[in-house]
Design a protein around this nucleic acid. Sequence first.
DNA 1: AATGAATGAGCCTTCATTCAT
DNA 2: GATGAATGAAGGCTCATTCAT
Lengths: 209, 209, 209, 209
Amino acid sequence: MTGSNNQTSTGRARPGRTAATQARKESVLEAALECFAELGIEGTTIHDIQRRSNCSIGSLYHHFGSKEGIAEELFLDGIGRLNRGMLRKIKVCSNAEQSVHAVVGYYVEWTTRNQPMARYLHSRDVDFSPQARQRLKRIHRDYITAVFTFFAPFVERGEMRVLPLDTYVPLISGPIQEYVRRWLSGHHPNGPRKVKALFADAAWNAVKS
Amino acid sequence: MTGSNNQTSTGRARPGRTAATQARKESVLEAALECFAELGIEGTTIHDIQRRSNCSIGSLYHHFGSKEGIAEELFLDGIGRLNRGMLRKIKVCSNAEQSVHAVVGYYVEWTTRNQPMARYLHSRDVDFSPQARQRLKRIHRDYITAVFTFFAPFVERGEMRVLPLDTYVPLISGPIQEYVRRWLSGHHPNGPRKVKALFADAAWNAVKS
Amino acid sequence: MTGSNNQTSTGRARPGRTAATQARKESVLEAALECFAELGIEGTTIHDIQRRSNCSIGSLYHHFGSKEGIAEELFLDGIGRLNRGMLRKIKVCSNAEQSVHAVVGYYVEWTTRNQPMARYLHSRDVDFSPQARQRLKRIHRDYITAVFTFFAPFVERGEMRVLPLDTYVPLISGPIQEYVRRWLSGHHPNGPRKVKALFADAAWNAVKS
Amino acid sequence: MTGSNNQTSTGRARPGRTAATQARKESVLEAALECFAELGIEGTTIHDIQRRSNCSIGSLYHHFGSKEGIAEELFLDGIGRLNRGMLRKIKVCSNAEQSVHAVVGYYVEWTTRNQPMARYLHSRDVDFSPQARQRLKRIHRDYITAVFTFFAPFVERGEMRVLPLDTYVPLISGPIQEYVRRWLSGHHPNGPRKVKALFADAAWNAVKS
DNA sequence: AATGAATGAGCCTTCATTCAT
DNA sequence: GATGAATGAAGGCTCATTCAT
């Protein structure tokens, strides 16, 4: 029912209560991440989350409205962090090759340091609510726009090939994502750090002029 | 309990009845595929499958033992078809470049023609039974072995780069898989046929010497 | 938003504040009536009332003690109004026939002008607290006593038949109540005004000597 | 989900199983009636019904689909019985006065002998499903049609007054219904048998020419 | 082989009420 | 007086699976 968005609140009004509320919400999301990563969304029960977060069922519903609400908030939160970190990283690059390397490199690092969230983000986002899908689409669009705005000059300058827009991401990130996915689901044991340079080179090769 | 494996049955004894049985099993798998593709595995109930397959619940359990049994049989069946088709396709190739092109090309074609199954195979295979995981691993290993056996000479001959074994698949199939995945989940509207050549070239570029 | 705690209360009796309190209570009862009439007592949640009354949950409990408390107050309030209005109306009558007509007439008018409350009063009063049942019984008894005291002389004077005491109300009010009930629950579309005279005559016929 | 209508089944196919099924459904309805009459529909839990009917929760849902489904079936069943009994009773009458007396008389008798069902039918039918409302309306319409068809000749013959159609039922049944309602809800202790004749006379008086 | 009634543990969610601020 | 976060018992319902016929 509630699902209050206190995130953007300036925090002036009753900071004490708001802070406590925020802390509680975060502890819930943390617990949920553990559960989802371990058991999957469907496999996780509200009770599982409630136990791990040391929070009553009532509070849980007071803050998130539903189990789906938790899953959505967590997903959007995680993807937002990854995107923002990625943009921060590439924005300090001054040429195309450096930027492409940064994309692969940051993906490897973030993914290695945030394995549970990475695993969760790799899970399919099937039954999100229409509103959540909207929010997700917007986040995705904003990210893609920012990335393309950044890379466009490189293409114009002739550093990178001119390709259909929807192929850049698969070409650059596809291989490393596939590698990471297989690693996260236990198909092969080696983390991606050792092959980071290899995949970064391949990515650059695929899009350089 | 039941889970009869009639696949390898010699089929001599009472062919009429066995054929009917086989037809029924196939109609169940067909119904299950539709359900899984639409609703996800967890979201599909035995009742859903039963309704679509025009088969009683009792029969369903008689033939497959459990809901999981259906999901496993369907998954292994599908992946087997894809693998066998792929091997058939590359085995007629006579050099590395042709073979890599064939891999990407066949993946695009099969995927376009078997969208529901492709979608199902892309779904995570989390909670399969230990036995099914074994069967899956074996299928995977056999396939990988066959593929590597086929490609090894090209590497030895110097047509392809020498790379860590677990990077070939991501490098060759990663981009097109990522593209197809995004297409299947509705993220972008264009099917992969138009960009088939582009991705085939990229794949070859990534692994050629 | 959050709490502006302008608590300047020194605790003395301040008519201004009391008036504000009264206004708030009335706005709650008003909101509750709408909810009860629409959703039924059981179907209405404290939250529903709170939202419509623009009043916090805490205040709601501060003033009424419980959901049941609201329902009771509203019911007793409503029935009190109806009874008082009815008595006022018949007390100005000078003979039996006029009085019986007045009963039917006032019921029709009040009911037409206070449809939501009429609907609420027609709902069964099952799970009121023992105390509320007491208050209700007392209200009922007082009303019946007042009415019978008023009508007794007419019976003694021979204007009305001598009947078992518990049959007067059903004979006089039963038909019009049944008609109104059917109208309020949507069974037939016509309000009772057009048939007021008809039912008033029938009532008089049923009890006149 | 199911809510199977085996009532009209000719019962040829597998009579044994069908009979058992029917018996089970009836025992559930019986248990439900007791609960509803005692605790009200909302106040009754599925568990209450399940305990009294000696039936598993699963079976309960298998046969009725939902708690609401039970309440609806019970209501429609009961009103059907009352209507059919009433029609049977009045159809053997040969003049208007006798018929009106029969209506009041049968209502008193049926109500006295089926107190729990009478109490249940007097409860409001608020949240029935659209389909159930349809069924109810149809039952009501068919009944009203049959009754009016029967009474029409009496009006034409001049035995009864010409009145608006929607006033006959309140005039004839209103008083006795109000009396019975008050009795069933404990407002006064005397059953209606003693005043049956009184109310029958009043009813006839209200509509005779 | 086929059928579908029966089972009941367990799930998500609601909601009246309390209480610290 | 006012606020709304917190609580948790209890409810309706689902669904994989079993089993007598």
